[in-house]
């Protein structure tokens, strides 16, 4: 299949920079597959998984808030954090999940919105880590 170029950038590193066949991302309007020749698109991303298809294999990575631009067969994903399943610190994610749940159930005036996002992030990480080979 014809290749499109994918670049995933986080504040800490250039996470991914290779040619791929296609990709599925979770935009704020729903899941979205991008193939070669797509109309240019810019959209923010939800906390979720991205699935990269490359030479017949599928790779999964978790991303937090970010956005994707696809212009002329160059896809750029800019996100606050991206991880492969192997890189995820499961214990840390579990702790974060517990903490966020406590905050959500407690009556404290803690910023609920923030706790909710933290919960989403940790759940997403835990799910992604199951794809570990």
């Amino acid at each position: 299949m014809a290749a499109i170029h994918l670049e995933i950038v986080t504040p800490d590193r250039l996470f991914f920079n290779e040619d791929i066949d296609s990709i599925i991302v979770r935009g704020i309007e729903g899941d979205l597959a991008i193939l070669k020749g797509r109309t240019p698109i810019v959209t923010p991303l939800k906390i979720g998984k991205i699935r990269i298809f490359q030479n017949g294999t599928e790779r999964v990575a978790s991303v937090t808030e970010g956005y994707v631009t696809a212009i002329e067969d160059n896809i750029t994903i800019v996100t606050d954090a991206a991880e492969w399943p192997e890189e995820i610190d499961i214990n840390r994610a579990e702790r974060a999940k517990k903490r966020a749940e406590e905050r959500l159930s407690g009556k404290s005036d803690m910023d609920l919105y923030r706790a909710e996002i933290a919960l989403k992030r940790s759940i997403n990480r835990l799910e992604t880590s199951k794809y570990k080979k």
């Binding site: 309007e29 109309t39 240019p40 698109i41 810019v42 923010p44 956005y67």
Partner: peptide, 14 residues
């Protein structure tokens, strides 16, 4: 403009 670009959900929100 370089091309016709889709903005989802809208340019403002992007």
């Amino acid at each position: 403009p370089s091309a016709i670009v889709d903005f989802e959900p809208s340019p403002e929100e992007v």
